[in-house]
């Protein structure tokens, strides 16, 4: 009787110690779900979801504060992936989905005020005070954050057209022929 109790108590102690050790040793820093959500978001850092960047939005989704359909650059594809990950319903996007675009500065009207440089979240604009600014197109995420601060309205968005580098083979289409 006593030996049984001792064995059980010992077992409980050993297992408890092991669990306690594991909880310290394998402690997960941060929320892994936030990282997974962030990996799906397009990282445009545009703030169109109402949060100041992709990470805060990911945190809000993870906390259940934000819906999954607030990210227009991610598109319906992104919503679908988030729904898959979180086991939620797929919802239509709050705002209309736009084609991918880049910002273009009209360099003749640019006055060199540096306001757009300060607004760009990904450092894709180069220029100096009273010098012409320009956008490094491959780095531009198309977030449109530079458009509002421009005092002379010299920035516009241009959809990315198909070129040899981004061209894709199309999904094979089955032609439907009229029955004879």
């Amino acid at each position: 009787m006593i030996s049984t109790l001792v064995i059980m108590a010992l077992g409980a102690l050993v297992l408890g110690a092991a669990l306690g050790y594991a909880s310290i040793k394998f402690k997960v820093e941060g929320d892994p779900l936030v990282e997974k959500i962030e990996a799906i978001l397009p990282q445009t850092q545009c703030g169109q979801c109402g949060y100041p960047g992709c990470k805060p939005y990911a945190a809000a989704i993870s906390a259940g504060e934000a819906d999954i359909n607030l990210c227009p650059p991610g598109g319906m594809d992104g919503v679908r992936k988030l729904a898959d990950l979180l086991g939620r319903e797929v919802k239509p996007l709050e705002v209309e989905e736009k084609p991918k675009q880049v910002a273009i500065i009209d360099e003749t009207t640019c006055i060199g005020c540096t306001l757009c440089i300060q607004a760009c979240p990904v450092d894709a604009i180069v220029g100096a005070a009273k010098q012409m600014h320009t956008i490094i197109e491959p780095l531009c995420t198309g977030c449109e954050l530079c458009i509002k601060p421009c005092p002379v309205e010299c920035i516009h968005m241009q959809p990315i057209t198909e070129n040899l580098d981004n061209w894709k083979w199309k999904y094979p289409v089955i032609e439907i022929k009229r029955a004879a």
Binding site: E38, Q43, D123, L139, T141
Partner: peptide, 13 residues
């Protein structure tokens, strides 16, 4: 890859 690069630049900024 573009998203990852954008994120890295955003964090650096």
């Amino acid at each position: 890859q573009a998203a990852e690069a954008a994120k890295a630049r955003f964090e650096l900024r």
